[in-house]
Amino acid sequence: MTITRRHFLKAASAGGAAATVALATPAPAEARTNKLMPPKALGLLFDATLCIGCKACVAACKQANGMPQEVSTPERLWDTPLDISGKTLNVIKVYQHGTNAEKDRETNGFAFVKKSCLHCVDPSCVSACPVSAMTKDPETGIVSYDKDACIGCRYCVAACPFGVPRFQYDTATPQIQKCQLCKHRMPEGKFAACAEVCPTGATLYGPVEALKAEAKRRLAMKEGDEAVFARGDIRTPYAPHVRPAAKYLQRIYGETEIGGTQMLLLSGVAFAKLGYPDLPAQSYASRSETVQSTLYGGMVAPLVALGGLIWAVRRTTKNGEAGE
């Protein structure tokens, strides 16, 4: 027993476990911190208190992105996606409780919420993707997908904390599908279709900095006061929507969550109830990449380990019994 233990410990110290040692003692100096918001980051501000659930954005998104119909009802008359999917990039979901008496109230109320890509500042999907099919634009920060690079491993699907990238399971040539903020419409001078058609300004498009300032302005408003809400693109808005300010939770979702997102959300109902979990400020991408860089930074640890192993194997196989 003592012998075997000693043998094992020796084995461990002999270089084969150099990596093992490195695993247990991550070097803080190499820890990767959250990535920062690109300077010209574009995004969306979704204000659940303004959303009326008209689903104009769902329809417009389908049209703008050439996505097929998705039917969930027995009648098969309407495009009725239950969630975002390989056929749907954006849905409006409803939160309901009790009697549904009042909008944006948690008890006996209801609320609408948009589900689409949040365009994380430090996206898990980009960090997970092994073949650079998921990329984050250094300028606009739009997280986009390249089907020609993708191998279809679905690591992005599994990794995204919001469950955004979706895969097509019903075709021999599947792709990942996710909102790319209508970047294909930008050369035509158009912006995100969801914000373009939103009748109330619940989905507002623009530079993240401006949207954040707008979100803060809304949080500072007094409930019931007449308030003016921009519609469309915050830089060149359509005629504003005027209505009394709602009661907001004093929180901008996406401001800090896993390093921040480029889609920000405001709501009167707790975000966790709307399918937006409470998340820490440190991005998961940075955690994962810290572990990786600690172990494999510059391939130093593996090479040292390999050297040790070669020495050890050479020593034990000198008598020529290696192949047996």
Partner: peptide
């Protein structure tokens, strides 16, 4: 194509 930050690589 390789994205070195990915564990899967």
């Amino acid at each position: 194509y390789i994205q070195w930050g990915s564990v899967m690589v």
